[in-house]
Design a protein around this nucleic acid. Structure first.
Lengths: 330, 330
DNA sequence: CTGTTAGCGCGTTCAC
DNA sequence: GTGAACGCGCTAACAG
């Protein structure tokens, strides 16, 4: 930096101001500094900058399962608006593991990230650490209890309810539910939507038909097998996430059950392979990319005005009917 | 830090030495310092540490398509061994875009990453920047031309050749190839394997049967449609990556072509949905997780001994025969 | 509008 | 074996 200053015939402070678009610096000097900087191939040392400014220029996107296309799409959304605003974003994968999540939050803090977008691994994930250190955070997908924080989620309850009503209207009688971990708000909200749909249609709720799995392929597979052992077995499945839906479909195929004739299936959240499966899977579609851009927007807003009141965005879902829920009328 | 020093009745320098396991510090003092540190909840400021040490403790994993499960699995591998060695790893997604890749490399440099594992977006990606600044790098999946760097790849040539021989042995006559971007070594190596298999079997190579797509779903879809327009159309497809294979299968389904009866298909690289498709897709399996752990191993080695001679690891692939290539004998 | 000065929080020389 | 002093590269105060 002092080389640049020397070459431009100014002081280091002016180099700093020029390169950071400080308004009070003479245009001609800005030009000279820019010139000298490019000639010398000068790149500001962001670590030193972070140390001094006490805030870096990268966002951390903390997600809970990098293998789920849901998060990859969200990531695209966050990234696109971050880059536009001069921030870079790096991904941290927690694997739904609280210890790993904690570790990454420490790293984020110690590395002085400018902000954090996080899909909490639990409804009690502690983000107070972040706030205590002045690092703004936005939660996505899942909620945290009793914490006042900017957030973006989808309307899981309505989406799930709509899906189950769709199955009932198609003529299925015994709809079962494969839900997710109780520590995730998405799982309980989707289960609640399932229950509400049954109630409103005047049916009772058989708790044996509700299985709690882990949002992973294998979990969905196991849960589906267990449900099929019941008497009478369900004739439709509402599966609360995309990965488990894939597992459930495999279970049905192995058991030789025809979908949608013998059993109907609706998943929650789309995936690249859902339309390719045989039969193509009906799902509740989430605006994943938009989830990311909204989160980024909230983070940007908070960065500009730390004292703004918190905002909670709720996005709508949409039922995408394909083949797996089209029961032939008797 | 000075608080800790004060509480432990020592100087800041001793705190630093104690916390970094410097051998020359008295065991009793180490204990006092540790005590004081935990009591005060002291966490070293990693930014300041990076500035001083001129190297941080996070690795950057620069990948080219976060939506491809191939990379997510590799990421797991890298992460698992990095965490074990006290490093954290963050992901950067380049989208096969050279400008974005360049930008992330600048960020990585400026943020003083301890090391980089990168799947280059092109065979001419410029790694020299990293080396000039003393940041060790390991390339994975794709090679870079004319650069001496630690690398981990799979044997694409052999894998592709094996796949095509499998199709020929199954009785298919006119095998076409959907390859990837010419700037990626994986694409040309897989295409070469395809050509070699045809040659060795005494067949000619019809260049019209070779299509170059972009490693994405839509590209595979389009390429397959084009191939089907040919006269005579191919009766088998070797598709050089998993995403394009999904697109190709969709094209075949739309055209009403039965797989594997009317046309056989083999993909390269597995995916969660490949076994779920109808018919289940035959693929060349890559040791993705191992790719990640090997890359991490090389990086660790280089970190410990910067002057070690470079190592190039080549991992074997394995043909996983499922349904899409099982041609019924006439 | 620009230059000078003084740290940001550490790790590393030197003396002792 | 330990402490004092210095500097990593940058930016925020202040003074001019």
């Amino acid at each position: 930096m002092s080389d640049v200053a020397h070459r431009a015939g100014v002081s280091a402070a002016t180099v700093s101001r020029a390169l950071n678009n400080h308004p009070t610096v003479h245009p001609e000097l800005v030009e000279r500094v820019r010139q000298a900087a490019t000639e010398l191939g000068y790149q500001p040392n962001r670590v030193a900058r972070s140390l001094r400014r006490r805030a870096g220029s990268v966002w951390a996107l903390v997600i809970s399962d990098i293998e789920n296309p849901f998060f990859t799409s969200v990531a695209r959304g966050v990234e696109d608006v971050a880059l536009q605003s001069g921030y870079s974003v790096v991904l941290c994968n927690t694997d739904e593991n609280l210890a790993r999540e904690r570790r990454y939050l420490d790293v984020v803090l110690a590395e002085q990230a400018a902000g954090v977008v996080i899909a909490p691994a639990s409804d009690r994930t502690d983000i107070s650490l972040l706030r205590d250190h002045g690092v703004p955070a936005v939660t996505i997908d899942r909620r945290i209890h009793n914490v006042d924080v900017d957030s973006v989620v989808v309307d899981n309850f309505a989406g799930a309810k709509r899906a189950v009503i769709h199955l009932l209207e198609a003529g299925y009688e015994r709809v079962a539910c494969i839900s997710g971990p109780a520590k995730l708000t998405t799982a309980v909200e989707r289960r609640n939507g399932y229950v509400a749909a049954l109630r409103e249609s005047g049916r009772g709720v058989d708790r044996r038909y509700i299985r709690q799995a882990d949002y992973r392929v294998e979990g969905g597979y196991q849960a589906a097998l267990e449900l099929l052992e019941l008497t009478p077995p369900p004739d439709a499945l509402f599966v609360a996430n995309n990965l488990m839906a894939a597992g459930a479909m495999r279970a049905l195929r192995e058991r030789g059950l025809d979908v949608p004739e013998a059993i109907g299936v609706v998943g929650f959240d789309d995936s690249p392979w859902a339309p390719l499966m045989a039969p193509a899977l009906t799902i509740v579609e989430q605006p994943t990319y938009r989830l990311g851009t909204e989160a980024a927007r909230l983070l940007l807003r908070r960065l500009r005005d730390p004292s703004a009141s918190t905002e909670a965005v709720v996005l709508a879902t949409e039922l995408r009917v394909r083949e797996s829920s089209r029961r032939p009328r008797p």
